[in-house]
Computed example of a mutant assay.
Amino acid sequence: MQKMEYKWIVPFTILAFILVLVNCDNSYYRLRYVPKPCTLCNTRGGPCCMLMEEGEGICCSGSVSQNVKYTQFNSITERAVASRGPVFNRTYQKPSPWSIEFWNYTSFIAAAAQYQPYGFGTTYKDGGKVSLGKMEVAALLAHIGSKVTCDDNVSVYERVTTCGLCNYKEKNTSFPYCDENYKDNYPCAPGVAYYGRGALPIYWNYNYGEATKDLNVDLLKHPEYIENNATLAFLVAIWRWMTPIKENQPSAHDVFIGNWKPTENENLANRVPGFGTTMNVLYGDLVCGKGNNETSMNNIIDYYRHYLDRIGVNPNEAGPQELLSCADQVPFNPSVALPP
């Protein structure tokens, strides 16, 4: 396989969207990606359950809806928006009632259910004492929250603690994000623009094409489906979380729950399983390897710790700073700044 390159999109006009790592090698075409199923712990006599009881192994049990309740989810989304009160009297953007309704619990659970068999939001370790699944939901929502919360003009602390989910697409929709180098595999549909959409925004025709292949929804011809369907908007985000960006690299899911085992070279690059490396997987050198004062990295960490608290997990369970941060990690992939 030839060496792959990657484009980073610089969405100057997006209110809260962060930069997005995307595959940009027109020689690359992969087969439909299906994650490895997670071993279920449904019976006490099962091998996985016995390992869990002995404090070993990683297994899956239950559902995302059991791990994250309606009220906990709403404390991050709808209730967070409603609680801001006087903030609306200032000049900050107020989310529309449509936006508040769009990012809803039912849609999130419906999307999550499609990836539960592969361990999303349902993973346990240490004999079932630690719900990695619950923490994983907070981790994904932290990435989402850092991109689609409203009020970009307020302080980071105010956004994290008081602002709910708002944006569902890029504000500047005039740039087409059509790469004709992919016309054979992922041809651009006439009159269609592939700007950022969804909870973890995707850009460019080739990424919409990859999502089309894996999710069996024709987003290449109809990317607007993401804007109009909250379940699909969440599903694309979970797909990004569960899917490796590049062959022979882990997914954000795998590095978070510990399915990924670093090689000697990765250890030398300071990449370790944990939340910090999810930022490396998703954003590469636009966030990671820039030291402890990198703003975007610290914002996402703040969201994660706060969201853990909202769903009933002690933020201290997130671990030490070296697991939360990617400040000293060598980025997985280089980036190319491409202003629209």
Rank of each mutant, 00 (worst) to 15 (best):
G291W: 04
S251Q: 00
G274N: 02
V255M: 02
Y283C: 13
G284A: 12
Q249E: 15
G291Q: 05
E264P: 06
E294N: 13
Q249R: 11
I300G: 05
F234G: 02
F275N: 07
G291V: 05
H253V: 09
G274Y: 06
R271W: 08
N270K: 09
E264F: 13
N293A: 14
P250L: 01
P250H: 10
P250Q: 06
N259M: 09
S296D: 11
N270L: 11
W239Q: 09
D285R: 00
L286R: 13
D254V: 06
I300Y: 10
I257G: 06
F275W: 05
E266D: 13
T277R: 00
T263H: 07
G276K: 04
N267Q: 14
R240N: 14
V236K: 05
F234Y: 11
N265D: 15
G276Y: 07
M279Y: 09
R271M: 12
N280Q: 06
T295P: 12
V236G: 02
L282D: 05
N267M: 11
P244C: 03
D285K: 05
A237L: 04
N267G: 07
S251A: 14
T277S: 11
V281I: 14
L268G: 03
P262H: 01
S296N: 08
T295G: 03
G274W: 01
M242D: 11
L282P: 04
N259H: 11
V287R: 00
K290Q: 14
G291F: 04
N270C: 08
C288R: 05
C288E: 14
T277L: 07
G276L: 07
L232Q: 02
F275V: 04
W239S: 12
L235H: 02
L268E: 12
P250K: 01
I300E: 08
A252H: 00
N267A: 04
K261M: 14
K290R: 13
V281C: 10
T277H: 02
T243C: 01
S296M: 14
D285G: 14
C288T: 12
M242Y: 03
A269T: 06
E266M: 05
N265F: 06
P250A: 01
V272M: 09
D285S: 10
T263E: 05
S296E: 15
P273Q: 08
N265H: 06
T263K: 00
L282A: 13
K246Y: 11
N293P: 09
N248Q: 09
